[in-house]
């Protein structure tokens, strides 16, 4: 990595629908992927709902963009940190989240999970080591 590479963390705190924050955050992630930076995503508070499986938006007339998260691996976005306490506070667990994987180029392209459930304390440490945090 060159010295120009910064650690970017996109913090997602809002539910996927009801406001546009989640969708427009994902649009930044996709554009940002072209800049060859060190990118991670964090999901906390209602943001954990963004990754739930089986989303069906037909009745509210807005696009279900949740399948796009599964494409992030192709953009070399391979770390999606989900805060355990935020899941638990909402009656959710890792089993409620969709399966998102990436192919690890350093390990013979083995398929690995992108979602990493971390504690609130670990999330704080992850945030502390970033250069740029974009909060949505």
């Amino acid at each position: 990595m060159s010295e120009d590479v910064k650690k970017f963390l996109y913090v997602n705190r809002k539910a996927p629908y009801g406001t546009i924050y989640a969708l427009e955050a994902l649009e930044v992630v996709l554009i940002g992927a072209a800049f060859d930076q060190d990118v991670s995503l964090a999901f906390l508070d209602d943001g954990v709902f963004q990754l739930t499986s089986g989303q069906d938006t037909a009745a509210i007339g807005v696009k279900n963009f949740s399948p796009t998260f599964r494409a992030l691996g192709d953009y070399e976005v391979t770390r999606l940190y989900v805060e355990r306490e935020s899941l638990e506070e909402r009656g959710l667990s890792a089993e409620d989240l969709q399966e998102i994987t990436y192919e690890d180029e350093d390990d013979d392209w083995a398929e690995k999970p992108s979602i990493r459930v971390v504690s609130r304390e670990e999330m704080a440490a992850i945030m502390a080591e970033q250069d740029v945090i974009l909060s949505f």
Partner: peptide, 20 residues
């Protein structure tokens, strides 16, 4: 202009401050 201008700004500055 495009969102690339946001990422470029974040790369080229010492601090990024968001007002939301």
């Amino acid at each position: 202009s495009g969102l690339g201008q946001l990422i470029e700004m974040a790369i080229q500055t010492d601090r990024l401050v968001m007002f939301g």
